[in-house]
């Protein structure tokens, strides 16, 4: 996809840094992959270093790490309940990955991999498969009763079951589109306004002010979208664990 250098969409171009071709597959190490590795490395460094030599009275970094842990733990506890404990590591990993991906994408010159539908859809598909597997493992084929809500008139069943199955199948799409659209729109908007700063001369102060406000807003969106992604994961687990 060729996008002009000056286009606000140019920032999303995936470039391969280390070309790797296996058969017909293009497995090149791209800038997108690089920033995913950076995100994972940062998360690991943050959690490992801050809890090394953990004290009863935490240091600043330790308390940040504990805060993120407590936050997700509380989210799982309140939304999934006691049975959600085994899935805490999964939700925590997803939350931290999306959060760091969103936040480092705001650093100028970095790459926003969460603004790519491929990445968010792969994440959402992982959640979808995990939730479906958990549902089948915990309930066996009884899990299929999930699509027949209790108290439904028999007349409605042939109509409602396909509807429920459809809305279940399209969950990963709306989950991924939500994250991708928010990140993509935010980053594009930032660059659109940034493009006006120099060309407007003195009046460039106005778009500059807008960009300052926008980048603060984007920090909020980055955290909020990671939260929404994680909490929807929790809600899907809740559905699969507590069949209605």
């Amino acid at each position: 996809m060729a996008v002009a250098e000056t286009s606000p969409l140019h920032q999303f171009t995936v470039e391969s840094l280390v070309p790797i071709h296996v058969g017909t597959f293009n497995l090149s190490f791209s800038n997108s992959a690089l920033f995913m590795v950076i995100a994972v490395a940062l998360i690991t460094a943050f959690l490992v270093l801050s809890t090394r030599g953990a004290r009863l009275v935490p240091t600043r970094w330790q308390s940040l790490a504990e805060l993120s842990y407590e936050f997700v733990a509380g989210m799982v506890r309140e939304n999934v309940g006691h049975e959600g404990r085994p899935y805490f590591p999964f939700v925590f990993s997803i939350f931290m990955f999306v959060l760091f991906g969103n936040l480092i994408s705001l650093i100028p010159g970095s790459f926003a991999f969460t603004a790519h539908i491929v990445v968010t859809f792969a994440l959402a598909l992982t959640v979808f498969i995990a939730v479906t597997l958990v549902g089948f493992i915990r309930h066996g084929f009884h899990f299929l009763s999930f699509f027949v809500p209790r108290g439904m008139p028999a007349l409605m069943v042939p109509l409602m079951v396909p509807i429920e199955i459809l809305s279940y199948l399209f969950r990963p799409i709306s989950l991924s589109v939500r994250l991708f659209a928010n990140m993509m729109a935010g980053h594009t908007m930032l660059l659109v306004f940034a493009g006006f700063i120099l060309s407007l001369g003195v009046f460039g102060v106005l778009p500059l002010a807008i960009d300052v406000a926008l980048i603060l807003f984007e920090v909020l969106v980055a955290v909020l979208q990671a939260y929404v992604f994680a909490i929807l994961t929790c809600l899907y687990f809740q559905d699969a664990i507590h069949l209605h």
Partner: peptide, 20 residues
Amino acid sequence: REAEAGRDGKVVGYREGAFG
């Protein structure tokens, strides 16, 4: 609190702005 979680299908922690 934990026992309340997941009851009634109520969403406990999902708070977003009106726009969201």
